[in-house]
Amino acid sequence: MIQVRELTKRYGAKTVVDRLSFTAKPGQVTGFLGPNGAGKSTTMRMIVGLDAPTSGDVLVNGKPYASSKAPLREIGVLLEAKAMHPGRTAVSHLLTLARTHGIPRSRVGEVLDLVGLSTVAHKRVGAFSLGMGQRLGIAAALLGDPAVVMLDEPVNGLDPEGVLWVRNLLTGLAAEGRTVMLSSHLMSEVSLIADHLVIIGRGRLLADTTVADFVTAEGVRVVTPAPDALRTTIAGPGITVTSTGVEELLVAGTSARKIGLAAAARGIPLFELTPQNASLEEAFMDLTRDAVEYEASR
């Protein structure tokens, strides 16, 4: 379990993480989403104590990370590809971490097997591709058989087969009851595996939700010859109706089922009644539009 509480990080005058709170729970995959520069990596560095928060705090499995007697058992992290010395072999790199905790050499072989790097175990990591570096980073994260696995943009540089492999690995780890958290700036990378979504923009929490809830928030498209009659029929607190065409309405704040029942009760004909499964990607972009830090100039 990761508990982030009112976490704030400033670099000089710039607030990069702004009073951020969320919890990543065991048995779930938490997708940590936000545009580039939103503060995801900074948050993850603070979770394992590499960066000190300006204020707020983080608990990993109920306690501050640095107070753990066996940190590698608490949480395994992949922060950036190739956070390793290029002159060492894959085995030596993992051994330098394993030795700190007295983790046996056999475990190093196991995790190299698991990530598919056994054949290059004795090659120097300087010669590794970005994808192989990511796999070695994931092997390092799994070394201590940790209760929490936290990966920053883990599918960067992986080929499609590698992406699928990461997905299966992470859902498997969550199914074993571990806390899994992964970050991405692309909704498509996490929507298939995440149960829980934490979306940030400019360091602030924008949404703490589930994949299912996040899409249904979009609204329902209704086509009817009597839009004005329907409007008055379904009006209510929290419900917004927007006209999107001569006979078209977009209704947010209620369900297709309720709109259909209300229309039937008044005898209003409906030609179309479609929950707007506006792609997750679109919903994500809508939510973060104002928070994009580096926008393409147009």
Partner: peptide
């Protein structure tokens, strides 16, 4: 399995000895 002073020394020795440049 836990972190020990001897373990950290062993890890640093591994770092030292696993580089050709050393």
């Amino acid at each position: 399995m836990k972190i020990t002073p001897g373990g950290v020394v062993a890890a640093e020795w591994t770092k030292f000895s696993s580089l050709r440049s050393t």
